[in-house]
Write a protein that binds this DNA or RNA. Structure first.
Lengths: 241, 241
DNA sequence: TTCCCTCTGTTCGCTAGCGCACAGAGCGCA
DNA sequence: TGCGCTCTGTGCGCTAGCGAACAGAGGGAA
């Protein structure tokens, strides 16, 4: 369950954009606290209630933030790729994460202990600024998704979701079954079949046995709700002040 | 639109619990930056996109965080009373709030400029800890509401909402029309009439012409989803470390 | 007291999505 | 090559909630 450490030292130019945006002096100081780990699809980084020890900065992996609902499994309320980090509660001084964090796209990530993070934050080398930016993004994304879930039909939310995944994995093709997707969106699998089949018939995506590909980006954008653009713009806030 | 300042000086024992939880030395230092303002029902403290200047610490007022949805008005994604503050984006270094903040329960609040807040935060007198706690609560609440909106029927969400308002205004009776309530929840007014009528017939609440009263607290709790308890427990995290 | 305006109750037809179930299709593996 | 398992497509009856509309009831103001 716990991700296995990879002995290789972190590269000097970090793949994670949050780390990459740090002043190089700050990053060099941080390096000794960063450990590279391999994350595989289905790994669970945090389980609600469990004490958490590390924060994670994805390199090429992709993570889902899930809120458990009684009886209903768990529902996605956020997505983090190389643009951000997970473990915000730890960064805010909470000993555990109330959300489940699931590895949705395998790959590697850098991790750091909460204690080290806290001590680095006191040294004030631009890390706090990056962290605040990430907290802001996570919070606003959750709020937008809250409104979206209540306001938009499945077809739109599905399109939004595909676009969000694409932005985070950096590819237009990825592996995910309809079953999994339905769980993330909190709907029936058959509902996803329906909505995805519709997109496929219109030539916007192709979909087969867990392999999904966005064929017509503009088309999918048009099929999604405006929430996608709202969330996308959150990511593009300036990276330094 | 902009709330009017009240000349009276802030009380030495603050009504806002976030301020009250500060070390008294820190609070005394803060006082000169705090200005008491009167907030009236319907006032809008932040409009998405507008530059924001102040953060607000409610005394006895109650504020709603709203996310606008194209065509659909705006939907509530958070609620803040005397236990917290609004203006988190400002506290995170963002120049404006992407959410609308609406005064839902009239009363007073203390406010402070973002610049002053930033300078106080650097002095590290426990303010950051309180702020982090508030950010954590707002974020987790939004995530829970996102899941709730997707998972629970209107009747449950209505009950949750009434309980959340009660906790924040500190009374079991408050003034709100079904029309307003429907907007907050993102449903039809007729749907609220239906769900509220049901609660009323069961003797759990009384409801008449914008005056609503919780008669049977346990009953309303039983009618709501578990999200209420999840959110309530977020508020009760320890106030000092 | 009377009028008016706001708020609530209720109806109708309709759609999105549910829960369940089963058939078929493709891929991996023996 | 054939078997079996996973993934997708589809059908059926049902419920929650929508959009629109209208009737009535209660309070406040003149």
């Amino acid at each position: 369950m716990s991700p296995r450490a990879i002995p290789r030292k972190p590269k000097s130019h970090p793949a994670n954009q949050l780390l990459a945006a740090l002043p190089s002096k700050t990053y060099r100081r941080l390096q000794s606290g960063l450990e590279r780990v391999q994350l595989n699809f289905g790994d669970v980084l945090y389980q609600p209630g469990d004490p958490t020890e590390h924060v994670y900065f994805p390199n090429d992996s992709m993570l889902s933030l899930l809120v458990a609902v009684e009886g209903n499994g768990a529902l996605e309320v956020g997505m983090v790729g190389k643009e951000g980090m997970v473990g915000i509660p730890l960064a805010l001084g909470r000993p555990n994460s109330p959300v489940r964090v699931l590895v949705q796209g395998g790959g590697s990530a850098m991790r750091m202990t909460g204690a080290r993070l806290a001590s680095e934050l006191k040294k004030n080398g631009g890390l706090k600024w990056q962290l605040d930016r990430c907290i802001y993004t996570s919070m606003m994304t959750a709020m937008q998704i809250a409104a979206c879930n209540q306001s938009h039909v499945l077809a739109q939310r599905l399109a939004r979701w595909l676009l969000m995944v694409r932005d985070r994995v950096g590819r237009s093709e990825f592996r995910l079954t309809q079953e999994f997707l339905a769980r993330m969106l909190g709907v029936r699998r058959a509902g996803v079949t329906d909505a995805a089949g519709n997109l496929q018939r219109r030539g916007l995506i192709s979909y087969s046995r867990g392999r999904i590909k966005i064929l017509n980006l503009e088309g999918v954008r048009a099929a999604s709700c405006a929430c996608y653009e709202v969330i996308r713009k959150l990511e593009s806030v300036p990276a330094s002040r």
